[in-house]
Amino acid sequence: MFYDNEMTLSFRAISSNEAFARVSVAAFALQLDPAVSEITEIKTAVSEAVTNSIIHAYDNGDGIVHIWCGCAGNKLYIEISDNGKGIENIETAMEPLFTTKPEQERSGLGFTIMQSFMNNIEVSSELGRGTKVTMEKSIGE
């Protein structure tokens, strides 16, 4: 696939990087001339995926989160991955309100929000190896 532009980011899995990650991806997306509401949707979806890597994949411990972004035409592609513990059952994990950390006041709505704010989302995961969330959004449609 040919992309007009691409970027990658890797950062430590600490919660103060959640804002850094979503603002960086939003800045990359600016070249597609998104509306303010589209920027918010992108920031929210990125925040959800990055937070999941920090709290679920690495259990708030050491680790690195990777982001790759590409754009082609009016489409934005975002890949967020970790080398954490992985997801046992992706279908169940994506169900609204499902969470494995209710004691931390997680709402279980991260995937639901990613799905409703992006045009497409795919999740692949291997237990003990990590998780990759791929999202796609058409800007200006």
């Binding site: 918010t40 920031k43 929210t44 925040s47 959800e48 937070t51 931390q104 006041e105 997680r106 709402s107 709505l109 991260g110 639901t112 929000i113």
Partner: peptide
């Protein structure tokens, strides 16, 4: 800005 952590 608020994500699902705010809902929680």
């Amino acid at each position: 800005f608020m994500d699902s952590a705010g809902i929680g």
